[in-house]
């Protein structure tokens, strides 16, 4: 079936148009995860410290720390991973402080975001950019 140039251009043009339209059905998975945690509330940029290496020795085991005095829980999101959720720390009545350490997997260089929910219902956010590298011969 022969397609005229006009038809092809029309097809191409409309495809480009569709690609440029915002697609509300595909909202960012990272934003979704954060919204589910905060209910859309504002997040302060103080009150939560996220400590992570600038360059990860290996993406499979990256040590990170959070500290959020007065927090009830802290959620960690890896914005560049196939799935953003990493873990959520919950501090109970007998927690000595709101400091926690763990090791996470990162698929590539990305921002890791921490969101803290405070006892008073407010939220705080911190992020760190971690470079995840390709090794030498060892991979």
């Amino acid at each position: 079936m022969k397609i005229s140039r006009r038809a092809t251009l029309a097809l191409g043009g409309s495809a480009a148009l569709v690609a440029m339209l915002p697609l509300p059905a595909f909202a960012d998975a990272n934003d979704d995860a954060i919204a589910a945690f905060t209910g859309g509330a504002e997040m302060a940029d103080t009150g939560l410290t996220l400590t992570a290496p600038e360059i990860a020795e290996n993406g499979n085991t990256v040590p990170i720390e959070v500290d959020a005095p007065g927090a009830v829980s802290v959620m960690i999101i890896a914005t560049g991973n196939p799935n953003p959720g990493v873990c959520t720390f919950n501090f109970g009545p007998l927690a000595g402080n709101q400091h926690a350490v763990t090791r996470i997997r990162l698929a590539g260089t990305q921002d890791v975001v921490a969101v803290a929910k405070m006892a008073d219902g407010s939220f705080a956010k911190a992020s760190a950019n971690i470079k995840v590298t390709i090794g030498g011969c060892g991979g």
């Binding site: 799935n83 919950n90 109970g92 007998l94 927690a95």
Partner: peptide
Amino acid sequence: VFSVDLKAAVSANPYFEFS
């Protein structure tokens, strides 16, 4: 005292430090 909800992005041999 403390609890964690883990997803697959927590490294193998999960490690936690808390107070």
